[in-house]
Design a protein around this nucleic acid. Structure first.
Length: 639
DNA sequence: TGGGCGTGCGCG
DNA sequence: AAAGCGCGCACGCCCA
């Protein structure tokens, strides 16, 4: 298949405008022949190339360029672009390099031969040209950010360096691509495929579209949240301003005085005859627990105010932006585990407590659909055990429809699993509490956690236990899931004496290197979950954008949170759309985790509510809203 | 004044 | 024998 490289120059990206107007298209053929085309002829050319099923299309952050074309003429380009992804005809030099680097454990930092030091790994075109080709791609003082000035000017009248810069990028992308084929030991004649890249680019396209569509917030809710948080902070400042714990800046704002905080934490522990907790680098810890446990009145106030301060400073400005223009979080397709990340702003870490999530609202005429997988990482773990060690009690329990936390609680209480199940459904609070206490066991131990660390980990779930109890729970956990001994043995063998290993995931083919024992323990189930969830996102996105007959047509994914797809749906078809989304998610994940039942159920909302429960009226899924009833939250139809 | 770094914490 | 992971972000300190 012939390869074709292209790059676009555009007007600038602005908040709320992820795909700005096109100025020109530059191209490079497999033989190295270059071209430079104005907007109209460039679009025609890209269209022809997309239509030609014999061509593989490559770019550096190619999703941006494809998105720009789609924005120029959606009716023509959206179906063509999806078809090209369907046919695995798109390649991206960033994705390729990231996959190569993850396989070698070099994604974030790598050893630089020239300087003999570890350096941060970069992925701009200039970074890759320098690293792979050993030459400098001029980026400074070029036309890069100024192509809007040439919009409408015939290319024959462009300054020579403006033409050169545009073409150079396409040429450099080709050279980088070919070098990558070499690095990966591949064959250019079959497209130079790097393991899992063909799916990765589809995933990345889904995530790019999600970024570009963006998500809105509601002005009233944001203003209310901001006012509450500001009042709370002012109150804390009033209490702390004369203690030395905080100090006033020139502009009147207040900052923590770390020296005084360190001093007080230490003094507080010493006064109780204890040694203060330390950080890894030997400094006195100032985490929440330390601030509370040192029994210093002022630090207790500080500890309480910290959450609100973070909410106010990190999230409120972002939420305010969303009342004016869509929030275009950047979703990154690949981190070391094959999971995704989100930045500017990070929508994957919005606090569950507080009201930040409640500020998000769907666009007019739309409702939100949230659908997440039920205990998916444990299901992925069970599948991994079947694949790697040939058996899994966890898999059997899941196939029998049992509750993994409840099973563990029953074992621990010395009662039968049947009895525990009955008492739990009857609302027995002792069983419910024991079950709750087993959650950290099921979530922490698979990653290779030791029972001593479990004491701290359980604290986060609200359980204060001693080392002896932690050890007993750990042993109980091993008895419940005996395959985990073989699992850790296998992990240990792979990591070996060197303390570092490389693995190819059995189902996805994803390659990751430089793994330590605990990293690998987590890696198998985390990467398998990520593979399935991203693949599900691609199929949901496909239905939304490229399948006019689908119930999902016209819906738009807006946030992806590892095991959850959050979507905007036209209200009139939202019941069918939501149920189709859930079906796609289950079907796709079942392809990756075929031996374990997969569960996911959708819920509709007119605002982002945490923990929302689905509400059905006459078999139709309708938007849910919470109502307080005698101190309990009940979910009712929001019509 | 600005970048680098350590710390702590949000989420899954 | 021993072993939670991995993101992004803000703050405050340090050093140039």
């Amino acid at each position: 298949m012939p390869l074709f490289w292209f790059d676009s120059e555009t007007h600038l990206i602005k908040p709320g405008l992820a795909a700005p107007k096109l100025v020109c298209i530059s191209t490079c053929s497999e033989s190295g022949k270059t071209g430079l085309f104005d907007r109209a002829s460039g679009l025609q050319l890209v269209q022809r190339v997309l239509e030609d099923k014999s061509v593989i299309i490559c770019g550096h952050q190619v999703f941006y360029d494809l998105g720009v074309c789609c924005a120029e003429d959606p009716a023509v380009f959206v179906p063509l672009v999806f078809k090209a992804f369907d046919d695995f005809r798109i390649r991206d030099t960033i994705i390729r390099q990231q996959l190569i680097d993850i396989a070698q454990g070099n994604l974030k930092y790598r050893f630089d031969e020239e300087t003999q030091t570890y350096v941060k790994t970069g992925y701009t075109l200039a970074d890759l040209v320098l690293r792979l080709l050993g030459r400098v791609l001029p980026k400074e003082d070029t036309w890069r950010l100024k192509y809007a000035l040439l919009d409408g000017v015939p290319i024959k009248d462009w300054p020579a360096d403006a033409k050169k810069y545009a073409v150079d990028d396409a040429v450099a992308t080709r050279e980088v691509f070919l070098k990558q084929v070499e690095l990966a030991g591949g064959d250019v004649s079959v497209g130079g495929v790097i393991p899992t890249e063909e799916r990765a680019v589809r995933d990345a396209w889904s995530l790019w579209l999600m970024s570009a569509w963006g998500v809105r917030t509601d002005g009233e809710a944001v203003a209310k949240l901001k006012a509450e948080l500001e009042a709370e902070q002012a109150e804390a400042v009033e209490k702390l301003k004369d203690t030395g714990i905080i100090k006033q800046n020139r502009d009147g704002s207040w900052s923590r005085n770390m020296k005084e905080i360190y001093r007080r934490v230490e003094a507080g522990y010493v006064a109780q005859g204890m040694t203060p907790p330390m950080t890894d680098s030997g400094r006195v810890s100032t985490e929440y627990e330390a601030l509370v446990d040192c029994k210093d009145e002022g630090l207790a106030v500080l500890a309480d105010a910290a959450g609100g301060a973070k909410l106010l400073n990190t999230f409120v400005p972002m939420l305010e932006g969303g009342t004016v223009k869509p929030i275009n979080s950047r979703f990154n397709c690949l981190v070391e585990t094959n999971r995704t990340s989100s930045s500017n702003p990070n929508l994957q870490t919005l606090p569950r407590k507080g009201s930040a999530r409640n500020a998000f609202v769907p666009r007019k005429g739309m409702v939100f659909c949230s659908c997440d997988y039920d205990t998916i990482e444990l299901r992925a773990l069970a599948q991994s055990c079947l694949d790697l060690v040939g058996q899994s009690a966890m898999a059997e329990a899941l196939r029998a429809g049992e509750d993994l936390h409840l099973n563990l609680a029953a074992d621990f209480m010395g009662i039968s699993r049947e009895e525990a199940a009955k008492r739990y459904t009857d609302g027995d609070s002792e069983v419910a509490d024991q079950r709750q206490m087993m959650k950290p066991a099921n979530f922490g131990f698979p990653g290779g956690m030791a029972s001593d660390s479990f004491v701290e980990y359980a604290k986060g779930y609200g359980y204060v236990i001693d080392r002896g109890l932690a050890k007993r729970i750990h042993e109980q956990w091993y008895r419940a899931w005996p395959e985990m001994r073989a699992y850790f043995q296998l992990v240990s063998n792979i990591v070996g004496k060197a303390g570092e290993g490389t693995v190819v995931s059995p189902r996805s083919g994803f390659v990751r290197g430089g793994l330590t024992f605990t990293q690998l323990s987590n890696h198998y189930f985390q990467s398998l979950t990520a593979t399935g969830a991203k693949d599900a996102l691609w199929h949901v996105t496909h239905a939304c954008y490229a399948e006019p007959d689908s119930a999902l047509w016209g819906s738009r994914p807006v946030i992806f949170m590892h095991d959850e797809i959050f979507t905007e749906m036209p209200e009139e078809k939202s019941s069918d759309a939501a149920q189709l989304q859930a079906k796609i998610m289950i079907d796709v994940m079942s392809g990756w985790i075929p031996d374990i039942p997969i569960k996911a159920s959708p819920v509709l909302m007119r605002r982002w509510y945490k923990g929302a429960k689905p509400v059905y009226v006459n078999d139709k899924l309708v938007p849910s809203k919470p109502v307080e009833e005698g101190g309990k939250v009940k979910w009712v139809a929001d019509l």
